[in-house]
């Protein structure tokens, strides 16, 4: 096959087409998977799915949470404590974070961590619908919530309209200033097994300070290995990993076929006494131009599809991940192959 008078080896056409097809499918899978994770977060209302509601009443010690949360953080990792503000217009939630919790899709800035959620300075993460209400002062951004100036540390939201876009999350202490200590709370844990322990600690901590009513634990039954294995989450994760592996294997195979097709070329370099870096340069010129071209071609097609399909919503991170899984893996194989050739004999 000749293009513009230059002979194009069949292996190059194979690499181009394969990389275009692999990139197209991979970007779509990664994008859909990310989208599904976001939908899951939205569906569960920013909870992990392992959360429990409780109510405190008749408590007079307004500062007792400082003490309790310090002890709870020392004993347990990866939990969050939420308090909902009784606002009829906006969904506002106070948060205290310890370790790893659900992080909503962020447009800018960052979400709450242990330091920011436990600080005494009023801070908020705004849904993108409230971004227009931000006031800038001294290089910082503020949101005025019922006459309290809260520093905006991040903007969360999704491209399509969702409840996250209309939510405000604020630091725990600031939220308690609006609700008072006697209100409803929800605690959320990363590991289902911690649900009972965290609940028990909170329960015991409030003994003698007021009334605490905790909802029945719907997750009290122990998880068996079989039920864990066949849970929707595990099945979906397994399918996703298997798909990634199949794409990686395809990339590996295509790269190997390409290398096999260029054996004569490699031998001619050896006969001419090409040095290692010269071989790398020659391969890079041939392999990367074609594989990168294929990747870009696949990306263009997926972007065109995304324009016409609501389900396909490609982000930069999807493209970077796909690039790493295709050309990144190809690079590793090439380098390994070159190093092997360097130390082998003709």
């Amino acid at each position: 096959m000749k293009i513009a008078g230059k002979r194009i080896p069949k292996g190059n056409a194979l690499v181009f087409i394969s990389f275009a097809a692999i990139s197209l499918c991979l970007i779509m899978v990664i994008s859909l998977s990310r989208q599904e994770k976001i939908n899951n977060i939205i569906r569960k209302g920013l909870f992990t799915g392992h959360e429990k509601w409780f109510e405190i009443s008749e408590c007079e010690d307004e500062s007792c949470w400082d003490r309790i949360l310090t002890g709870l953080t020392e004993k347990h990792d990866d939990f969050a404590l939420y308090v909902d503000l009784p606002d009829p217009e906006i969904s506002v939630r106070g948060i205290y974070v310890s370790g790893e919790v659900v992080i909503p899709p962020m447009i800018s800035g960052k979400y709450f961590d242990e330091t920011s959620s436990g600080s005494s300075k009023p801070t908020v993460v705004l849904g993108k619908e409230y971004e227009s209400n931000i006031i800038s002062r001294d290089g910082k951004k503020y949101y005025d919530y019922h006459e309290t100036q809260c520093e905006v540390i991040g903007i969360m939201g999704t491209q399509k309209d969702s409840r996250i876009n209309h939510m405000i999350v604020m630091d725990f202490k600031n939220a308690l200033n609006f609700t008072g200590i006697n209100t409803d709370y929800t605690y959320d844990v990363k590991d289902k097994e911690d649900l009972a322990d965290v609940g028990q600690y909170i329960n015991e901590s409030f003994q003698g300070m007021g009334q605490l009513f905790m909802s029945q634990n719907s997750y009290s039954g122990a998880t068996t290995f079989v039920s864990f294995l066949f849970s929707e989450e595990v099945i979906m994760d397994t399918v996703y990993i298997m798909m990634l592996i199949s794409f990686v294997v395809s990339t590996v195979l295509v790269t190997f076929i390409w290398l096999r097709n260029r054996e004569t070329l490699f031998k001619s370099w050896d006969l001419c006494g090409f040095r290692f870096l010269e071989k790398v340069n020659e391969i890079a010129k041939r392999y990367y131009i074609i594989s990168f071209g294929g990747f870009i071609f696949g990306l263009i097609i997926i972007l065109c599809l995304g324009n016409n399909m609501d389900a396909v919503n490609v982000s930069v991170i999807d493209v970077i991940q796909s690039f790493a899984f295709t050309i990144g893996i190809g690079t590793t194989i090439l380098v390994c192959s070159l190093i092997r050739r360097l130390f082998s004999k003709i």
């Binding site: 230059k6 002979r7 194009i8 004569t264 001619s268 370099w269 006969l271």
Partner: peptide
């Protein structure tokens, strides 16, 4: 052991 995607000139010029 000639490079199939290079013409005669480029094959000879390779070294």
């Amino acid at each position: 052991a000639l490079a199939e995607d290079l013409n005669v000139y480029n094959n000879v010029a390779l070294p």
